[in-house]
Amino acid sequence: MPGGWWLRKRHYFLYVVREFTALPMALWLLWLLYDIKSAGSAGFQPQRSIGFVVFSAVCLVFAMYHSYTFLKLAGVIIHLKVMDRTVPPRVIVLTMFGLWALASIVIGAVLIGFAR
């Protein structure tokens, strides 16, 4: 395959972006792991630099794109039957997006609600 195949069609480009989302998300999770490890030391300093905020904002864009593309695929991957009737893919996708909203509210509430 020629080197620039992924730049020739918008669909190819978006496919590569989707696969690439793994890298920034992995980097952010490694930071989270470092943050957890830092909590054990007496000199713990919470991350407040603008550089970190910019890094997180970039990672957030990729994470949102991962969520959108992955949850949208649920309608293709998941096949459910209820009372001998196949659940329409659209309902599955909507349920997954609903779960995303619910999970975000619960996790956000824990992260903010337990802060003092």
Partner: peptide, 17 residues
């Protein structure tokens, strides 16, 4: 990762700092 990661990044990576 799709369900949980964006809110972690938003809250711990942007809103908190």
């Amino acid at each position: 990762a799709a369900l949980a990661l964006p809110v972690h990044i938003l809250v711990q990576g942007i809103l908190g700092p």
